[in-house]
Each structure stands twice: as structure tokens, then as C-alpha cells.
Amino acid sequence: MTIVRKAVDVNLGALAEALEKKICAACDYLDTAECHPEKCMVAFARKVLAFVLPKGVLDLPGAAQLIPAQDLKVYVPEDVAAALAETLRQCRECRDNHSPDCVIALTRACLENALTGHRIDYPGSVFLYLARLREQDPRLAELVARELRGGSGPEAGR
């Protein structure tokens, strides 16, 4: 039987929590006049997750074009790695049917943009993604792999 993926099949709450507690909470601009959610890739990802949660959908065709392009903050790989790992934890390994419009992929794209300024083409598989990430950024790949090995959720390693 075909398993139809819906938002209830994945833990988007854990993803939102990882963004909030691992990245936003560590952000120097939090609760200051310099916090501009409309320009922030992490705030964008959090809002998209908040948008889809009550709707029960995973795909948002065209949403990738709305990712803010003017986020010039410097992100710390250690903070972002935990959230990036959480996107992989929630990934359903869609392989050829991977959709770049999936909110998990959108969140991952935001984090990739935040750290490296560009997206990594997701191959639909966590293992293959880590291999690809290792080719581009061995240190980040190691941080993400460590999070995946040791972490059980957004609270792990705190």
C-alpha cells in the first residue's frame, strides 16, 4: 500500500523547536531592534512550518522562491548543524520522489543558504546527502553526523 505523506507523518514541531532553541535562542539579535524576521532565513523557515502545521500538508509549490535573499547574518555552524540534522531526522527518504517544495526541504534550504550561501541538491536520501555535504564542507558534515549519532531531538547535547 502506498503511504501518503502528510504533515502528521513527520514531527514538524521538533523541527520548529530545533530552529527556535538551537538557532534563534543563540542569535545576538534576538529581542533587539536588529531582529528583522522578514529578512531572516530561520524566521522564514519557522513561519512556513507554522503555516503548514494546521493545514496538514507537506508540499508548498513555489514557496522556495520566497526564501529571503537579504539575510547577511553570520551563522555559527555548531548552532545550525543541530537543526540541519533535525531536517534529516524527519526526512522520509523519498529518493526519486523527493520534492524541493517539501517544507522539510525548504527548511534545509534555508539552513544551507544561511551557512554556505547556496543550496545543496538533495538526493532524496540522508546517507547520500551526507556524502554530498562531506564533499563540500567536511567540517559541517561531521557536525551534522555527530548530531545524528548522538542527538535524539532538539534538546540533545544541550
Binding site: F44, K47, V48, F51, L60, P61, G62, A63
Partner: peptide, 13 residues
Amino acid sequence: VLLELKAFLGGRE
């Protein structure tokens, strides 16, 4: 849905 998302993004967090 994309229009709705745009409106949602434009609102206050």
C-alpha cells in the same frame, strides 16, 4: 496556497 503563505509571511510573527 502560495498567495495565502505570502499573506501569512507578511503578518506579524
